[in-house]
């Protein structure tokens, strides 16, 4: 029987807790990690209400939603960084997670080369570190200092480091945040190819709607509760999604196969056909 770890529902923790997840119970299906009826509130203010989500082997699940929707909180709950106020989190026993956090401030006062960063918290061989850097197109950065990297380079290094742990599950929080549009498209292609090669599960948080949906198997639209979920086409056509992001957002996905001649939504990106796949 497959066993997963369970988070004890209990009082809220404001910071990463020690041993937040010790008990193990049987897991449903091939889920790597699952949240069941998870609610969480900070200082009495509800952030997540009765949320259920699961990530299975080899699938890319994307969390989308407006700012303050609780996307990062849900990821942190799934990672075991905060305990839910109620509900539970199941995690496959022995699960290895590769995590790319949304914010990653680097202190200039600490010298840290990319090479050194790769084995910061695990015994990763030099060869494996270089392989993983090559896999994310960052091989040439091995000797650079972390403080000297551009936004896109930094994300590739973070991704390489996550891969070096040989994760069963990748959790990527806004991986394209500091990257321009073309860079974002490349990054999502890279994530898709990593999934295809390694068959790991991927939980992706994004608000780059037009790019990200094409790369996802399943989309969960979150706004404190789950508004809608399913395959990208289903979500894009869902009234809740339209309500949250506006009809132009759905159209800009190009999922219906028609194009607008102009766009004035969200970030004002020039999509240039990049959103026209599907």
């Amino acid at each position: 029987m497959r066993r997963v770890r369970e988070e004890k529902s209990g009082h809220m923790l404001t910071r990463a807790a020690d041993g937040a997840h010790d008990r193990t119970v049987s897991a449903p299906g091939s889920a790597l990690v699952a949240a069941e009826h998870v609610s969480i509130s900070f200082r009495g203010k509800p952030v997540l209400e009765n949320v259920g989500v699961a990530v299975h082997e080899g699938e890319i699940v994307t969390l989308i939603g407006p700012n303050g929707a609780g996307k990062t909180t849900l990821a942190r709950v799934l990672l075991g960084l905060v305990a839910p106020t109620s509900g539970r989190v199941l995690r496959r026993a022995g699960l290895t997670v590769g995590y790319v956090p949304q914010r990653f401030p680097v202190e200039r006062i600490m010298p840290l080369s990319v090479r050194r960063f790769m084995h910061l918290n695990a015994a990763i061989s030099k060869e494996r570190a270089l392989e993983c850097l090559a896999e994310t197109g960052a091989a040439s950065l091995a000797d650079a200092q972390m403080t000297d990297l551009s936004g896109g380079e930094f994300q590739r290094v973070l991704l390489a480091r996550a891969l070096a742990r040989e994760p069963d599950l990748l959790v990527l929080d806004e991986p394209a945040r500091a990257v321009d549009f073309a860079g974002a498209a490349q990054l999502y292609d890279l994530i898709a190819s990593i999934r295809a090669r390694r068959r790991c599960g991927v939980l992706l948080i994004s608000h780059d709607l037009h790019v990200v949906l094409g790369a996802s198997d399943r989309v969960v639209c979150l706004n404190r509760h789950i508004c809608c979920e399913g395959v990208p086409q289903h979500v894009a056509a869902h009234p809740e999604y339209m309500r949250l992001f506006g009809p132009e957002a759905a159209a800009s996905l190009g999922i219906y196969g028609h194009r607008h001649d102009h766009r004035h939504t969200l970030s004002g990106d020039i999509c240039g056909g990049g959103g026209g796949k599907g």
């Binding site: 910071r15 041993g19 995590y99």
Partner: peptide
């Protein structure tokens, strides 16, 4: 020290 939350997600016992 580099990233507390990342370390915690990777199993570091932060408080201890």
């Amino acid at each position: 020290t580099v990233h507390e939350e990342l370390a915690a997600a990777e199993g570091v016992r932060v408080r201890r």
